[in-house]
Each structure stands twice: as structure tokens, then as C-alpha cells.
């Protein structure tokens, strides 16, 4: 077989495999959209093909082809718009919305994944072209590991300690430990909340984490992930059991209340630990000089 053909094939296969691996890790985003799986695999294949032909084209040298490749790579910006549009449309009919921050985060991740696929295909086809096909068996797994590592991001469990909170009523005010959650008027609702409700305290480990958890978008993401796995007892126009996350304004930690279909507090804590920290809500006060000064 021709040298460049093997290089292109190696690039396409490794890039496509990379996309597949990264797609498997986002079960939270796509619990029920098999068609979206297919769309993303197809786009991943296109991205892999783009990356794979770049180095053989340059080596030939065919500069026109490379120019066209750069143009084609621009198309992947649309993936972000596509994801954002889909999720925003679905948002209108959700009882517990994801929130714009979460949607934006997901959309960006999908875009970035395709660039990683292009990079993987580019590296592997280059290695095969210049060094030989044997080396792809070393470089491809390395690329996969790097891509998975880069896409993993941090989780709420990394920036906060999550503990069980005590749920009780102070008059008509529902509280989790010392944080007021909401006012519940009816006695029947109060009894139900005390019987089946769960309270969780999310304690940030530093000032950055506190700012992150302050953001309403991050709180919505935590609630959405918890509800999408454990369920909730909110119904259309019956919002008295809505899950809420409120902060202790002096101490800075969050208190979350959830009335789930599966009231299992241990799993709730595990789920919250695995909620991704959203890019757009990430606190960075400790990175600035005055932020560090103010923190101590």
C-alpha cells in the first residue's frame, strides 16, 4: 500500500476511536438521545479525516489542500451552536432546567472534542508517515489518554466537601442545618418533606470554590444532575417540592434540599461529587493578588 494511504488510514481510525471513547464518558448529557450519538460519531469521523490528510498533503506538498483543510476546520464551530440550540429548545419543556451555564459548558465541550479528534488524527498520521506504521500503537493510546484527561475537568467533589444536612422546620421555614431554604405553608407538605426529603451541605474548600458554588448556574447544574438520576416530586404547576440550593451568606457554604423519587442520601452525595465544575462559573479570586490578600 502507498505510504500516505496508510498514514491517512491510521489517522482516521485513531481519531474516530478517540471520538468514540470521549462520547462514552458523557452519559449525563445524553441519557436518551441515540441519534445524537450517531451525529457526533459522524462528525467525529469527518474531523478525523480532516486531521489525517493534513500531514500527507503538506508533505506532498499540496498547499491548496491544506488551505481547504483550514477552511473545513472552521465548520466545527457550528457544533457548538447546534448543541446549544438543541439543549435550549429542550430547556423550555424541562421541569428542572439545566441552566444556561451548563448548556454553554456542554456545547463548548462538544466543540473542543472535535478539535482534539483533529489533533489526534494529525499526530498519528504524521507519526505513521514519518516513522512507520508500528509506532501508531504507542502514539494512539497516548493520544487517547491525553484527550480523556483534558476532557475530564474537575468535579464538585474536588472543590467541596459534601455532608448530610439535617432537615427541619422552624415554624413554617424549611431549614437544612442553619440555612433557610424556603417557606412551606401547608402542614401536609411539611410532613411529606420531613418524611422523604433529603438535605445536603456542600462546603467549599477555598475561596475559589466558594465563588464557584455561589454562581446560580453551578447550583442549577448540581440540582439538574441530582434530579436527572434520582428523580424529583415536582410536577407541572406544582412547584412546592422544588429542589433548591441556598447559601449560608456568612459562612459561604451551600445547603441543598431535594425531595427525590429515590430517597437515598449516600447516592445523592456521590452524584453531587461527580457534577462537573462549569467553566463559566469557575471562581478565580485566588489567582489575583488582591484576591489572595483578601482571603487571609
Amino acid at each position: 500500500m502507498e505510504k500516505y494511504l496508510i498514514a491517512v488510514l491510521a489517522g482516521i481510525i485513531s481519531g474516530f476511536a478517540d471520538r468514540w471513547l470521549m462520547l462514552r464518558s458523557d452519559y449525563r448529557y445524553y441519557p436518551t438521545y441515540p441519534h445524537a450519538y450517531f451525529t457526533h460519531l459522524a462528525l467525529g469521523f469527518i474531523a478525523a479525516s480532516l486531521g489525517a490528510v493534513a500531514i500527507p498533503a503538506l508533505a506532498k506538498p499540496d498547499y491548496v489542500a491544506v488551505t481547504f483543510l483550514v477552511l473545513a476546520a472552521q465548520q466545527f464551530r457550528d457544533i457548538r451552536n447546534m448543541e446549544r440550540e438543541t439543549l435550549n429548545n429542550l430547556e423550555k419543556t424541562k421541569l428542572i432546567p439545566r441552566g444556561n451555564d451548563y448548556i454553554e459548558g456542554i456545547a463548548r465541550v462538544f466543540e473542543a472534542r472535535n478539535y482534539l479528534v483533529i489533533l489526534t488524527a494529525l499526530i498519528n498520521s504524521g507519526i505513521v508517515y514519518y516513522l512507520g506504521w508500528q509506532y501508531v500503537f504507542i502514539s494512539a493510546p497516548l493520544c487517547f489518554m491525553v484527550s480523556l484527561k483534558m476532557m475530564a475537568g474537575s468535579h464538585v467533589g474536588d472543590i467541596a466537601q459534601i455532608e448530610t444536612g439535617k432537615l427541619f422546620f422552624d415554624g413554617s421555614m424549611l431549614r437544612v442545618n442553619d440555612v433557610v431554604i424556603m417557606n412551606v405553608g401547608l402542614h401536609a407538605d411539611r410532613e411529606k418533606i420531613l418524611e422523604e426529603g433529603m438535605g445536603v451541605i456542600i462546603k467549599p474548600i477555598d475561596d475559589n470554590a466558594r465563588l464557584t458554588l455561589d454562581a446560580p448556574g453551578q447550583r442549577m447544574a448540581i440540582i439538574h444532575d441530582a434530579v436527572s438520576i434520582l428523580g424529583s416530586k415536582v410536577d407541572m404547576s406544582e412547584t412546592q417540592f422544588a429542589p433548591l440550593a441556598r447559601k449560608h451568606i456568612d459562612k459561604g457554604y451551600l445547603a441543598m434540599f431535594l425531595l427525590a423519587n429515590e430517597p437515598d442520601i449516600d447516592y445523592l452525595i456521590e452524584i453531587i461529587k461527580r457534577v462537573p465544575v462549569l467553566e463559566s462559573t469557575r471562581g478565580t479570586s485566588l489567582n489575583s493578588f488582591y484576591g489572595r490578600k483578601a482571603a487571609d
Binding site: 415554624g171 413554617s172 417557606n183 412551606v184 405553608g185 401547608l186 401536609a188 406544582e238 412547584t239
Partner: peptide, 28 residues
């Protein structure tokens, strides 16, 4: 409590207690 429950269901609101003998139905 019964009246406010009915009103809350009909209006799609939530019942809140002001703790002075008054219940209000609020939409959030």
C-alpha cells in the same frame, strides 16, 4: 389549609405561611 391547597392547585402557585394566621398563594 384546604382552601389554600385548592387555590394553589388551580392557580399553579405555592402556599406560604406568614405565621400570623394568614396563608398566601404565590407564583414563583
Amino acid at each position: 389549609e384546604k382552601t389554600s391547597l385548592y387555590l394553589a392547585r388551580i392557580l399553579g402557585g405555592v402556599v406560604h405561611d406568614l405565621e400570623n394566621g394568614i396563608l398566601i398563594i404565590c407564583k414563583h
